[in-house]
Amino acid sequence: MKKEKPKLTRSQLKKLKIKRRTQIWGVVVTLVLLLSLIAPYCLPHDPLATNAQAMRQAPSPEHPFGTDNLGRDVLSRLLAGARTSIFATIMLVIISFMIGTFIGVICGYYGGKLDDLVMRFTDILLSVPQLVLAIAVAGMLGGSLVNTMIAIGVTSWTSYARLARSHAMRIRQLPFINACRLTGSSDANIIMHHVVPNLIGPMLVNATMEIGSTMLSIAGLSFLGLGVAPPTPEWGSMVSESRSYLQLAPWAVFAPALAILITVMLFNYFGESVCDLANSKEA
């Protein structure tokens, strides 16, 4: 008798579909990251070179996205700024993820007074409008990329800390943790080898979903003139610089703004499919 091919159930098919979609978005996001790393080395023009003869030129084959107020090539600036804009975002997500997870795990695992204190502190940070606090901090520290990251980081670690805390509190009560204690494992050992590995999955899913909104916050601050100092190309500050001559050279405003939009959308699609994948595995 001929052996029949095992048929996939509808839910299995759906899982495969979600998996494939996540892989595709993963490849796209990796390509964007690679592109932003390579781009500064293969620019059509010097992103800092001003040219009085080519001020505010409309898009043409020579300058696909036109030129800005100082005659600088918008495409070159866009490509040169990609690394700053994207990597500042990724770095900020990674740093606040690490700090937040560390604090959250410690609070959730030990509980007690320290936990109370830290959670009250996050309550207060969460009751202040994030961008307003970030503007105040960045305004005080002065404009630079690192200061922008600090200003947003002041509040962004709290959401990771809360999530990590709730996971750590749940894991702490599982029987195998008690078993570890009985065998004489130290707290540090239990946290590193049993608590963290069990919560890192959902934490990473959350972090990928935060990339888009973090990028928007950084862009917002640099648009307000609190980010990198000109003439260094960065997407948010490019929009800010060229805003005053929107009427004369809209391309210089909309090219970097659209670059932000597209990148944020890519990261959001990626984050959403990673989240779907994690949920489908759980189900």
Binding site: L216, F254, N268
Partner: peptide, 12 residues
Amino acid sequence: TGNAMPNFLIAL
């Protein structure tokens, strides 16, 4: 798309 738009892009 609306979710991913920087608010200055919408305003501009």
